[in-house]
Design a binder for these strands. Structure first.
Lengths: 221, 221
DNA sequence: ACGAAGTCTGTGACGCTGTCCAAGAGAGCA
DNA sequence: TGCTCTCTTGGACAGCGTCACAGACTTCGT
């Protein structure tokens, strides 16, 4: 009965996995800023140093959190008739997964861990690219280009709901005087785009430019 | 002789502009992390509180820095035969300007000030879009999509040279096992793409999908 | 010429952060 | 019982942004 949970509950039953889950929950529920070592320790009813013992310092904590969270993102099945469509579908999965838990994404993005966060989905995209006939350096470059654009849209979406109103891009651009600019455009710039649909059309174009059209499904092999 | 420099050198000849320039230089020369209030004050030979007096708190300092730096970015003339080409040229200007002073870009990007940083160039892009016949909400959406992709590439480039080797994306992806993946692709994933050329081809595709081809230069008007 | 008003500067503190040393408590084994 | 290994803790350290307060200097009104 005391043997079952491995050998790690010597004192307080604290283990790395539980710390990570609690950290993820804390960031998701109360924002990325709420995730401090002390706050997380308090949440666990433990001294700060215990986190260091089990997980390591803050950077290691964030890395492990993002990795763990990223594994869950890759569980959704990929749908689509052609490989080309499935490439786009994976892009959409990255996008949706990132926005579903924005605070984790924010944490990952501000610490250069986005690649780690989406690594499994990127691998899935590499597989779909291969099935579409894109391999080797072309696959590497296609993957890079697509994920760069996806990442850009994610950052844009994160900024849209976290920025103080006075330097959102809508206000920034609208407050810039330009006599030559069409008044229709000018007033449109003060409103915000519908990012999900913009994401779809833009990434469609990017994927189409990088992945050849379906040559009855056997261009390579 | 003492009247010439306006009326602002009451005590130490300190003024907002000088503080901002020094802050920009400090960030550029010694990295974004070196820019602390105390460090900047020491650099200026002044107490920290003086910065608060002239510029404001850290967020206001960063905002003013980014704004000032962004104005200089917009001084480069825009070249290109068709309006469509000039849209791409502006995108390239944003990209190159951002990478020329990476530390400032890093500062802007990590504080949600990227729109502010590139605001003048974005306005220039709006003008070129208008000349290409894209106005109103279409212009707003095109601008948004293009800048999102540009931003994504910029973030990707910043990460490439600032990340510890062990969780760069090349290592991250290469260390992921997948039996079904083509060995050529697998080894290519361990190398890094040439971002500048990838940027060009990708943004070419994005712009082409959003901006109609040149209808002998007078589609609108 | 003298004092009041306004403008700028410096001192020093507050609460917060990540980090870690050194000491202790508990379990298992001899 | 005592030794060892694993885990937990308290408390400190240096650094950060921020600001209340008091002092110094200039300018102006009288």
């Amino acid at each position: 009965m005391a043997e079952t949970r491995s050998r790690s509950n010597r004192h307080a039953g604290l283990e790395a996995g539980g710390i990570l889950d609690r950290a993820i929950a804390l960031a998701r529920d109360e924002g990325a800023d709420a995730l401090t070592m002390r706050r997380l320790a308090a949440e666990l009813g433990v001294a700060t140093t215990s986190i260091y013992w089990h997980v390591g310092n803050r950077e290691q904590l964030l890395t492990a959190m993002v990795q763990r969270h990223g594994e869950r993102l890759a569980e959704t099945p990929i749908t689509g008739d052609t490989a080309r469509e499935r490439v786009l579908a994976v892009a959409r999965l990255i996008w949706e997964g990132a926005l579903a838990d924005r605070e984790i994404t924010r944490l990952a993005s501000s610490h250069g861990l986005s690649s780690l966060h989406a690594q499994h989905l990127e691998l899935a995209m590499a597989r779909e690219l291969q099935e579409a006939g894109v391999v080797g350096e072309s696959a590497r470059d296609a993957l890079r280009a697509i994920t760069a654009c996806v990442g850009g849209f994610i950052v844009a979406a994160l900024l849209d709901d976290a920025l103080p109103t006075d330097h959102r891009r809508t206000s920034v651009l609208a407050h810039l005087e330009d006599p030559g600019l069409d008044p229709t455009t000018r007033s449109a710039l003060a409103t915000s785009s519908h990012l999900p649909s913009l994401f779809d059309t833009t990434l469609q174009a990017v994927v189409d430019s990088l992945v050849p059209a379906d040559l009855s499904a056997n261009a390579y092999l």
